[in-house]
């Protein structure tokens, strides 16, 4: 649905996006994570045929960026960084205007459908300027969906919302997932990405890492088992001489043991610990949050610069 090859965009001396290669499948929710100024918005703008790449190429919804821009715009929806509603127009008029620009068959029906879906129907005649932040974001999301785009670009859909409004918007996004619709989600919210996305890209001007959230974590850290012992005997690390153990670290009294196949290896590990006279209190798998990984990756990338 979205393919990019060596997509690059510079602004004068600044390189905002450098040699981006991507392939996002139909029906996938793809997370695009990066810090401020990483080039997320610039990437969306290029893929939505709003600004031209400096070099490289991309295909979106089957159309070539640069050659078939109008078809791309007809087939993608964009939730921009700011809602950008017309404050002097009612919620309904905001949607009708866009439905007509997109050439939607029956603008009234489509507008009603999304206003109802997003629970804004009762407020349809209210000026958008009087809406709360969360309502504005919902209306903007409705606007991006009116023409039933195959690809939906969401630029930080929950940024600036209070936790409750953010949850409402996040839940809505979850309901938008269908086999027919591809969602490209930019965010700095890692929980959001982990919850919503099939795959995530960590991005900072260039692609830093790419994969399923679980896969990425595994690739970076392997799998780790945390064992808590009562009065851990000294030298227990050295005494644990099992061949599958890759590394042992101590973290706050617990042993963090890197291995490859915890399902098979944990029982052996526990047995060995007991043999060594350790009092095992608990055994669990260490779940790295995407957040930690993100910070590690981005720091590592800084060091490489």
């Amino acid at each position: 649905m979205i393919e990019a090859q060596k997509l690059t965009r510079t602004f004068g001396a600044i390189t905002a996006v450098s040699d981006l290669d991507l392939a996002v499948e139909k029906g996938e929710v793809f997370g695009f994570l990066g810090p401020n100024g990483a080039g997320k918005t610039t990437t969306i703008r290029m893929l939505a045929a709003l600004i031209a790449p400096t070099s490289g190429s991309a295909t979106v919804a089957g159309f070539r960026v640069g050659r078939e821009n109008r078809s791309i715009r007809q087939n993608v929806g964009v939730l921009t960084e700011t809602p950008g509603l017309y404050k002097r127009l009612s919620a309904l008029d905001n949607l009708l205007f866009f439905a007509r620009l997109y050439g939607v068959n029956s603008p009234e029906k489509q507008a009603e459908r999304y206003l109802r879906l997003f629970e804004l129907w009762d407020r349809r005649d209210q000026l958008a300027g009087g809406f709360s932040k969360g309502m504005r974001q919902k209306l903007a999301l409705a606007r991006a969906l009116l023409h039933e785009p195959q690809v939906l670009f969401l630029d930080e859909p929950t940024a600036g919302l209070d936790p409750e409004a953010a949850k409402v918007v996040r839940d809505l996004i979850e309901t938008l997932r269908t086999r027919e619709r591809t969602i490209f989600l930019c965010t700095h919210n890692l929980d959001e990405a982990e919850r919503l996305c099939d795959r995530v890209a960590l991005f900072k001007t260039r692609l830093v890492a790419l994969g399923r959230p679980s896969e990425l974590k595994e690739r970076m850290y392997g799998r780790r088992t945390v064992v808590r012992l009562l009065d851990p005997p000294a030298g227990i690390e050295e005494a644990l001489d099992l061949p599958f153990i890759k590394r042992i670290e101590r973290d706050d009294g617990a042993l963090v043991i890197s291995l490859t196949d915890p399902e098979r290896e944990n029982p052996i590990l526990v047995k060995r610990l007991v043999e060594l006279g350790a009092k095992v209190q608990s055994v669990s798998e260490l779940d790295v949050r995407l957040e930690e990984m993100y910070l590690d990756v981005m720091e590592g990338d800084d060091a490489a610069d």
Partner: peptide, 18 residues
């Protein structure tokens, strides 16, 4: 300038209008 202030130019330009 109304479009600029409201930040509505980008969604507008995202439509197929020329």
């Amino acid at each position: 300038i109304g479009e600029k202030e409201q930040g509505s130019l980008e969604p507008l330009l995202a439509t197929p209008i020329s």
